[in-house]
Write a protein that binds this DNA or RNA. Structure first.
Lengths: 172, 172
DNA sequence: ACAGCCATGTAACTTGTTACATGATTTT
DNA sequence: AAAATCATGTAACAAGTTACATGGCTGT
């Protein structure tokens, strides 16, 4: 969250309300879940950490607003974030633990578990592809959806491999 | 972390030290980064939440140990976790924000950013494939590595698409 | 005597998250 | 007069993370 806010401020100074709106828009359909308060909490923590600075701006026919902008060390942190290359590869590990737990507890059949997850991902993939049709081609939104879609396909293929292995082992 | 610990306890009751070792082993090369204290912190929080219960076990030629096992509500939570199907699709969104920030700040060239990330992922993929060779075929470890590898390939393909789009836009 | 493994924790800090509170202005 | 929008925050808790503290037992 902090890095996200900072990256938005890297573009131009803004106040909390504006940031919240930009975030909701950037998050798309998932944007509704964003709690307004969180933006302000994050901003005040960033200020305490010296990464942003605020100045109050009076408005004639509106409540006052507080415009935040990056400090030097804030810009430094954005640069670090930009060049950071740790991508999340946590999920397969987590799912692997789930499989092991399912096998150990025998509360759920591992094969059924893999299958339900696979079906769910397929459902999500169809939904994504519907969304992609509504997006103008070659837009940023379409590019984003393509990234999510490629990942989903990779995960689905992996689940298929898992399922195959499980069935093979069962038949031995 | 909580769910991970719970899933390990779902297999069989265990004490903290043992859990830590199993975790380090399960995490493979990344296991070294695990702070021992965290296991105990997590266990005590799980106990406070009523998801696990401990009983102290004296050992003749070793310090005492505290063996934890799941309560009924702990087992319930594991079941919820097992059947939960939310996979992380956050990363493309995050990278998209990075691209936007890079374009806005002009501190870094977006094309260079994509390229460095792509090279890094390629490096990781090679490393993964080396690890896979050392793993016995058809083992759980090999399956895990395959999942990570499929994801990496999807991410790399996405970055290639991003790069293509950026170059296309530049030439206009 | 000293290193190293077995075993457990606590204090403190950061971050995410939610629920709640406040008040002005504009539109209907 | 009510509802929506503009605008900001606080208090409190949950969770991840780290640094540090403690002690017994084992092998050399």
């Amino acid at each position: 969250m902090q890095d996200v806010i900072l990256s938005l401020l890297a573009k131009e100074p803004a106040h909390g309300y504006e940031l919240r709106q930009r975030l909701v828009k950037a998050l798309g359909p998932a944007g509704g879940a964003l709690n307004p308060g969180q933006v302000y909490v994050t901003l005040s923590r960033l200020e305490r950490a010296g990464l942003v600075e605020a100045r109050e701006v009076a408005q004639p026919s509106h409540p006052d607003k507080k415009v935040y902008e990056l400090t030097a060390s804030g810009r430094e942190r954005v640069m670090l974030w930009l060049t950071d290359v740790t991508w999340s590869r946590v999920v397969p590990l987590e799912f692997h633990l789930k499989l092991a737990a399912a096998a150990a507890t025998r509360l759920t059949d591992p094969v059924a578990l893999v299958d339900s997850q696979r079906l769910e991902l397929l459902r999500e993939l169809r939904q994504l592809q519907e969304l992609a049709l509504q997006e103008p081609p070659d837009s940023d939104g379409a590019l984003l959806l393509e990234g999510a879609s490629l990942r989903l396909q990779a995960d689905i293929r992996w689940l298929e491999v898992c399922q195959q292995r499980l069935v093979e082992r069962e038949s031995r």
